[in-house]
Amino acid sequence: MAEGSKRVLIVDDAGLVRRFHRDALGQGGFDVAEALNGVEAMEKVLAEPFDLLVVDVNMPQMDGISFLKALRRQEGPTGAVPVLIVSTEAGPQDVEAARAVGANFYLVKPVRPEVLVEHAALMCGGVR
């Protein structure tokens, strides 16, 4: 992947979804990393900076909502990293729950690749 691209962390337990999102964002010019659940995501976020997290809600070990709650308790830039929730749940209560813990935006699966890339680029202020 091209150097200087914005770094995106995909957090999803489903391999197919991770791959789909990775391909879309990778083709869109982003530098992509992956995590299988909230615990793994937290480890990665604490270890290195990301420009955007694309996070699923229903995951084993630590779900998206708990992860986000824990994330926003972090001090400094780590806690304030932009988060895009991508979930199969489309109910208003689901969207509201994510917003309440500090999700910056919510998209419902399946997300078309160009839609994902457009939102990621907007939220990162560009691809580079």
Binding site: R72, Q74, G79, A80, P82, R99, V101, G102, A121, G125
Partner: peptide, 29 residues
Amino acid sequence: RLLNDNGADGRTARWLSAAHVAANVLRHL
């Protein structure tokens, strides 16, 4: 909406992330 939410838990980070995303959207355009 995020900025107008005063819930105490993780508030500063939430607000900062919102301001950051808003600035990024503007910058990208």
